[in-house]
Nucleic acid binder design. Sequence first.
DNA 1: ATATTCTTAGGCCGTCGTGT
DNA 2: ACACGACGGCCTAAGAATAT
Length: 211
Amino acid sequence: MFTHSEIWAALDKIAEKNRLSISGLSKRAGLDPTSFNKSKRVTGNGRLRWPSTESVSKVLACTGTTVEELASLIAGRDPDETISSRLPMISFQQATASTCFDDAGFPIGDAWKEITFPYHVDRYAYALEVSDDTLLPVYRRGDVLVISPDVHVRPGDRIVTRSHEGALSVAVLRSLTANSIEFTTVSPSLESWHVSSRDIDWMARIVWASQ
DNA sequence: ATATTCTTAGGCCGTCGTGT
DNA sequence: ACACGACGGCCTAAGAATAT
């Protein structure tokens, strides 16, 4: 059971999460831009108008929203923000300690502190604070990078890798084969190097950076 | 400053499903 | 067959935002 205001609030939230206006969401769903107008949610005589199940289905399809996520939004819970509004964070310097990550690159241990993050990211995301100026001019000391070990990495992505020795590197992934990985620096020099895929523990995509 | 585009409000109408 | 209710589309108008 849900109410008229809850289903409309959920659609408003889906639009917001996809950085769309409510008319923009209607258009993306293949509907008339005015379909979800606030003025159309109540008729002139006060009768409540509800979105059709077909329209809701189109919205879910065009935004990649699941029925479960819609249910959470209707219930007033944001499945992303409630999980990711607080992120574990650690500095690059501290992160070189071997106990900070498990074998798959997910945070473990007590060295992490928690920060509040204003955007929604997946539940596995964590933050790394830049400890020095070796990444200038792209990242400077104090910048925060948000990393998701759960996001598929593709050539062109900025990533963080970890060697068997525990050293973290920030780079751009250029190519990836079964045995070899090519990286370039994030700096304008674009120096490139190859490593064997056996020589790194993991790599994870940088999904956000404070700049 | 002006033009263009986008967003929103509101009225009206078409289409579809349901009940009589 | 017809009436009615309901949602979405079409249209206009106005205001806001953005581009030139």
